[in-house]
Design a protein around this nucleic acid. Sequence first.
DNA 1: CGTTCGCATTACGTAAACGTCATCTGCATG
DNA 2: CATGCAGATGACGTTTACGTAATGCGAACG
Lengths: 133, 133
Amino acid sequence: MTEDLMTIREMCETYDVTPRTLRFYEAKELLFPIREGQKRLFTKRDRARLKLILRGKRFGFSLEEIRQLLDLYHVGDQQLTQMSRTYEIACERLADMEARREELTQAIDDLKEQLRWGEKVIVSMKQEKKAAE
Amino acid sequence: MTEDLMTIREMCETYDVTPRTLRFYEAKELLFPIREGQKRLFTKRDRARLKLILRGKRFGFSLEEIRQLLDLYHVGDQQLTQMSRTYEIACERLADMEARREELTQAIDDLKEQLRWGEKVIVSMKQEKKAAE
DNA sequence: CGTTCGCATTACGTAAACGTCATCTGCATG
DNA sequence: CATGCAGATGACGTTTACGTAATGCGAACG
């Protein structure tokens, strides 16, 4: 069935994006679908990249930042020096992400505390209301 | 010194934003500086809100989403029904954030694996180079 | 064989989140 | 008193990330 290649429509349904979005990502060199005549055919690689793009977006990365991140995932043909540089960048990114998770954890804890507080307020408001009746 | 009130300039330096940004946030009802004549004076509350705004931005929330989140933090005057609704929204947000953290953890693990792989490649490339000499 | 479908390209439009510029205004200071 | 800031207020510009026609084109279908 999906013999490793997907049409634009299949991609859209699978990943819940519009055709326009996929074409846009191609224009921005985030995806590189092959062409059968005019039509685009998206490979396994494109799909992996798209998943990473969507994930990146959910964390507030710009498409340009995501493009740089994506480059970390298709290393293999590069020179040693390039490779090492890429490796360094990836390490930095990793540190970023771990810091982000720390912050997110903090935010979650904060919100949880607010919720506990809100819960108490709601309960006491209910009590008041009852007493007033 | 900072007798609980800060000028726009002080805010900018403290939080590394531009005046325009602060005015913009006020226009969007994210901040409510008090006025001394014309001038804005930012309170402790504004500063707490700004910190949350900046944090939210780092996680890719839109300003509108952030505004809703901020409302969760100044509850207290609301009616019970409003309050309960707010509470529900907050719970959903919390779930979002926890899901986000899950995803982030996954992303971190993925990248770590890539790094281990990259490390191996680099080592083998160095070996090759050595052998070639 | 005409038409509909799916996909393509080109081009203009739009919402969000500010940047930038021009102009105005108190106020402090030499 | 002139003048120079710090901050205010529009108003228009800009970038990002697509949306939305308008138009064209090859294959498939009735």
